[in-house]
Design a protein around this nucleic acid. Structure first.
Lengths: 142, 142
DNA sequence: TGGTAAAATTTACATTTGTCAACAATAAAT
DNA sequence: ATTTATTGTTGACAAATGTAAATTTTACCA
């Protein structure tokens, strides 16, 4: 019954964003909205919806003729999970640079920035001089 | 001839990290190192190497019996590209929260933190109150 | 209450990814 | 020069992903 956001593929993300933004949405609305952004057929969108249901990312209820799709997980949570998953593959030593790049290239609100500042002010107190690379096996003398 | 880091799959990343860390490395070293971390056969690792060469991420030179594999792109650049690619799929409104999560969960050096602080101090000057969601088509009145 | 328009479900197919075993080529040792 | 140990190349196969057509079901209207 656990929902695993890392199973959401990039096409499926497109679908999820619509549902997260609009709340429970029925098939036709989803199709109409997505076709404004992507060149997908109705069929393609339905396949994607089905797969998301199979992955337990979406739940359906029947509303008359159509299904209504409900997200089983929160968008911000899914984003965090996804992003953590990717970072988990990367070298510790360069994560800082990658985050700096993200800060640079993302639009951020006053509030977000303030939160980051507070967090960093705390973090710097105990931050190491250097972060070691963790790309080789622990006991690797190579 | 362009190298596209977003084509590196998660298994392939494992290989790349070894090569980035050690510099040009030959087949046997790569295999020996990776088998300390992952339960892959020699065959699997060779396939992954071949695919990376096909994707133009790696180049080979022959050193006696074995190949030596050279990375065609920098690790930090590859990380940035990968991370930007993922963030490109996500809702603008919540990117801040995702970055906050990353700052929280990553080990960061004094220097990295200082850079972030400088960047944020600049950024806050022109930061908006709120970041709008960009999950629906631009002209979507839905 | 039966026909039909509108949904949903099935089937499909090419690519990519994760994993490997089998086979071919070749450098080194005898 | 042959053999053989090593390394590289091919072929394979299942599962996941992107994309969509064909077919079946069903809710509603006449």
């Amino acid at each position: 019954m656990t929902v695993n956001a890392t199973e959401i593929t990039s096409s499926e993300w497109e679908i999820m964003r619509v549902i997260w933004t609009k709340g429970p949405t029925d098939t036709n609305d989803i199709i109409a909205i997505l076709q404004q952004k992507r060149d997908w057929t109705e069929s393609t969108i339905k396949t994607l919806l089905r797969r998301l249901v199979n992955k337990n990312i979406l739940t359906t209820t029947k509303a008359g003729r159509q299904f209504t799709y409900h997200a089983n997980l929160d968008e911000a949570d899914a984003m965090t999970e996804t992003v953590d998953d990717v970072f988990g593959r990367l070298c510790n030593m360069n994560k800082g640079a990658a985050i700096i790049d993200l800060i640079q290239s993302s639009e951020l609100s006053q509030t977000d920035i303030q939160k980051m500042q507070a967090l960093l002010a705390e973090k710097i107190k105990t931050a190491p001089e250097k972060v070691a690379c963790n790309c080789l096996p622990d006991d690797c003398d190579c």
